[in-house]
Design a protein around this nucleic acid. Structure first.
Lengths: 177, 177
DNA sequence: TTAAGTGCAAAAGTTTTGCACCAAG
DNA sequence: CTTGGTGCAAAACTTTTGCACTTAA
């Protein structure tokens, strides 16, 4: 399930002339223990660590997220919030895709192996090595439609769905450790 | 091929209590005449219009792009450049997906109807109305791999692929009108 | 020992917003 | 007329970077 242990991450970093630092190990650990369906922005990760008493600078967070995404260890998600989110880049059968409401940003995961296969085939056909493959489905949720989206929706309206399971890692993740 | 005429855009805007302005019409027109495979960032669009002697403020550009994306008229693409790109949101059979090299940002389009179908089915199953559905495949191109990506690649290296057909709209689009 | 990594603060880049004026319906 | 839209400039955010210091290998 866990793709990388601290040891294998170290091996892979060293092979590229890079180093395993306590910060990188901590960040890997956070993603490995993130409940399913969660993904963190740089700021989320920074705050989560702060709450735990681990003070890793935002610069390092950004540098590490980028590094790990380029290594193929993390997936960079562009859902609808205006900033990137990250999660472990897990292979089949954990690989999944996202539905996002463009009004309330509520996100739902789903799996579909044939899409993953199409992605691989397509990359191969183009002579490129696939690192990640994500289907993002932009939608409008029925709550927003019912309230008259797009014209009649109050600008400050927030979708009830957005709160159904918002930031579960906020509580449970630290409790889980 | 063109999904909206100025008249149908006007009708749809008015239905929502909004207005058709010369700026909106101009922007719609640009996207309708954009050669296939091109997509514009806010800045791209701003500059393209400037070169044509049409001065539409960046604020208006941003507001219009967001509006049209929320109407489902434009697709918002998050390729790898750190800012959004837009293109017409065309239905089957023009609907397509993207391969992106995370090293050089070179983008390749491809079509796959079964993915579009999967997206529709998935949205329906979740009780959501689909607006857009994009498969983004993150890859590494062989040029980068050959040069020792990721560790050995000079930080200022730029992939030859990135220049193969960069910004064709830069010349041809204005010529086409 | 030495090159890579970190933290801090400053900078850069993208997108949003307040407000006065303009214009579509 | 009335309300929405535009342009401008300022602000807000996210992400990157320069530099001195630290540390993994």
């Amino acid at each position: 399930m866990a793709l990388y242990t601290a040891a294998s991450l170290k091996a892979e970093l060293n092979a590229r002339g890079w180093r395993l630092t306590p910060q990188r190990e901590t960040i890997l650990h956070v993603f490995q223990n993130l409940p399913r369906g969660n993904h963190l922005s740089a700021e989320d990760l920074y705050n989560l660590l702060l709450r735990r008493g681990e003070n890793i600078s935002l610069s390092t967070i950004y540098r590490t997220l980028k590094l790990m995404a380029r290594m193929g260890l993390l997936r960079e998600l562009e859902l609808a919030e205006g900033h990137k989110h990250y999660e472990l880049n897990q292979p089949y059968p954990h690989h999944h895709h996202h539905l996002v409401c463009i009004q309330c940003n509520k996100t739902i995961e789903f799996k579909n192996d044939s899409i993953l296969k199409s992605g691989l085939k397509q990359a191969e056909k183009a002579g490129l090595q696939m690192i990640d493959c994500q289907l993002t489905i932009h939608t409008i949720c029925p709550e927003a439609l019912r309230l008259g989206w797009p014209s009649m929706l109050p600008s400050n309206w927030s979708c009830p769905r957005a709160h159904m399971d918002a930031h579960p890692w906020d509580e449970s993740e630290s409790a889980a450790e």
